[in-house]
Computed example of a mutant assay.
Amino acid sequence: MFDLRRLRLLHELSVRGTLAAVADALAYSPSTISQQLAQLEREAGVALLQPDGRRVRLTPQGEALAAHAARMLEADEQARAELERMQPSLAPVRVAVMQSAAHGLVPTALTLLAEREPTLRVEVAELAPEEGLFELAARGFDLVIAEQYPGHTREHRSGLERTLLGHDDVRLALPPGEAPAELADLRERAWVLEPRGTAAREWATQQCRAAGFEPDVRFELADLTAHVRLVAAGHAVGMIPDLVHAGAAAPVRTVELPGMPRRDIFTAVRRGSTERAALRAVQDALQDAFDAIRPSEP
């Protein structure tokens, strides 16, 4: 029989690519992981790894077993979810959340959960959507809150299921007291945008280009609350999603962008864990928190 813990190590290696990355993610030493994978090879009776410079890579047999390991891990989650449904234990839920949701959704959702499921432990870490979805597939988290901008679809990873929470308007942000302006009028202004490589940065840049100019990005920050403060202080203009303000009055002047764009806010979980009572409780609380901010959401 294969040991499920060793199969998970093989699965992690197939996803993360290096023993060091697996060790870092699971808080094991690389030598421990090597020893466990060597034992898995003995159980399998075939070579699963082969040297590749200073690293190792999976053999064809290793890739085949890693694919089976993913299905076995999903079946394990399904079994645990059914047992939890029959006798609720509300095991901890690990949530990866993008920053705007950490500000706008998580506090309200946790308040609801404290009333509904006072014994449920929820652990939250802030991660960019790209990283959060990867870690969810790699079993680093149980649930992810992420976003998708118009025209910039995210990769659908095998084994993950998404649930749309709703839509979040993205608006042009100007210093308070400043007269409303069209996007094309801001070609000479300093801009604050998210870092290169993020979907938000690519989308915002495309909006500016469609208006006929390349934005002068003087401030490149992942922290959207810093965006708001820079704009409020008159140092920049930007594009800010409504969720950042968590339903409160924005401290900046907001102006509709062409086409009134909205990003999708969604949760994602692994398919094998969809029936977990604890996960459903967290998803319900997040939905209620979002609906409280956007009560008129169509």
Rank of each mutant, 00 (worst) to 15 (best):
P107A: 09
Q148Y: 02
L83R: 15
M86E: 15
T111I: 13
L133W: 03
E131I: 12
A79G: 07
L127T: 06
P92W: 07
V95D: 02
E147S: 14
A81T: 08
F134I: 12
L143E: 07
E84W: 00
E82N: 05
S100T: 11
R116H: 06
R116V: 04
T108S: 10
A79E: 12
A75Q: 13
E63L: 10
E74K: 08
L133M: 12
P92V: 06
Q78V: 10
V144T: 13
A146D: 09
A91Q: 15
E82W: 07
S89R: 14
A91D: 15
E126I: 15
A102I: 01
E123F: 13
L83T: 12
E82C: 01
H103A: 06
S89G: 14
A128R: 05
L127H: 14
T108Q: 05
L73S: 07
G132Y: 02
E82P: 00
A81D: 10
A66E: 09
F141L: 09
Q87H: 15
M98Q: 05
A128C: 08
A138N: 03
R116E: 14
A75P: 03
A66F: 08
G140M: 00
A75C: 04
G104H: 01
E147H: 07
G132E: 04
L112N: 03
A75S: 11
L90C: 09
E77I: 02
E74Q: 14
Y149S: 12
E74W: 02
A138V: 00
L73N: 06
A91M: 15
Q61V: 00
A109S: 07
A66V: 10
A137R: 08
H103D: 10
G132T: 05
L143K: 04
L133Q: 11
R139H: 11
E131A: 15
A79L: 14
R139F: 03
D142R: 00
Q61H: 10
G62M: 06
T111S: 15
S100E: 02
T119E: 15
Q61W: 01
P129S: 13
E63Y: 01
Q61R: 10
G140Q: 01
R94M: 07
R71F: 03
V95S: 03
A64R: 12
M86H: 12
P150W: 09
A91H: 15
A81V: 04
H68A: 13
Q99W: 08
E82Y: 02
E74R: 12
R71V: 11
P107L: 06
R71W: 02
R139S: 06
V124S: 02
A96N: 00
L65V: 11
Q61N: 09
S89I: 01
